[in-house]
């Protein structure tokens, strides 16, 4: 029993190391393709368009309700002190620096990242990747790099959109639920929230996009075992992306001003 337990722990540690190593190798190969930048521009454009169009509705919905949730939390806190002038600041600060990039990153991972894993995984099990290799087309250059670049750019842009929508949502719900007038929300927001808060969140968003891209591509191109394998890879990819987002958030919070 005890031996069994240690074997299981050892196996999962080894497995974790293998996945991390695989992701780092992929990172290395992607960087090589970017120095100097040589990759497929058409594929990048296609991916940008596809990922953007696919995610806009979900990002807008998420951001709108995130704004609402944050304004309610701020309201619960300030009601006690009667300090409604703090609501705009509290909601804006939380949304821009932490909760916005984090929740949008998680939703992006669920929408675009998992889709990407499923797509690449299906290409692997139907031997399309081997087909590309047979035509001496480098799959990293042709498939991976465009996706990585698209995800970084798209999550960055979508977070800008999400930030705006979340603040609008927070202001609206603040008026309806917490008796904070739009004017006082705006005063509190514009006086206390700085450009640094926004850039802090946006840099995080770009890094999250990079992490989602790397994990989803890695689990996609290493799919084994046919149809069931694709499902398992998608599952692993979203979990790894969530872990990566939270851990990098932890590090970035210190590193960024």
């Amino acid at each position: 029993m005890a031996g069994n337990f240690f074997a299981a722990v050892g196996a999962s540690v080894l497995n974790l190391c293998a996945e991390v190593g695989g992701i780092l190798t992929l990172l290395f190969r992607v960087l090589i393709c970017l120095l100097p930048p040589r990759f497929d521009l058409d594929e990048t454009w296609r991916n940008l368009h596809k990922m953007g169009v696919r995610s806009v509705p979900i990002i807008v919905l998420t951001a709108f309700f995130t704004g609402g949730i944050m304004v309610i939390q701020a309201a619960v806190f300030v009601k006690k002190f009667g300090a409604t002038s703090l609501v705009g600041w509290g909601a804006g600060y939380a949304v821009f620096r932490e909760i916005g990039p984090m929740l949008l990153g998680l939703m992006f991972s669920g929408r675009v990242g998992s889709n990407n894993t499923a797509e690449l995984g299906t290409m692997v099990v139907t031997e399309q990747i081997d087909g590309l290799r047979a035509l001496s087309i480098d799959p990293v250059r042709y498939l991976i790099v465009p996706r990585v670049l698209s995800m970084i750019v798209m999550l960055f842009l979508l977070t800008i959109l999400g930030d705006v929508v979340a603040i609008v949502g927070a202001a609206l719900f603040g008026t309806v639920l917490a008796d904070v007038s739009l004017a006082s929300f705006w005063v509190s927001f514009s006086q206390n929230v700085h450009v640094a808060d926004v850039t802090h969140g946006l840099i995080k968003a770009a890094v999250f996009g990079f992490i989602v891209a790397l994990t989803s591509c890695h689990f996609g191109i290493t799919v084994k075992g046919g149809a069931v394998g694709v499902g398992r890879a998608v599952n692993n990819a979203v979990v790894a992306a969530a872990l990566g987002i939270v851990l990098s958030d932890y590090l970035l919070t210190y590193a960024l001003p």
Partner: peptide, 19 residues
Amino acid sequence: GGSEGVGTATTRAVINSSL
């Protein structure tokens, strides 16, 4: 729709349950 279907279902599950 077969094997791709399972991948799509997983994707939809993550996004829909998060939302």
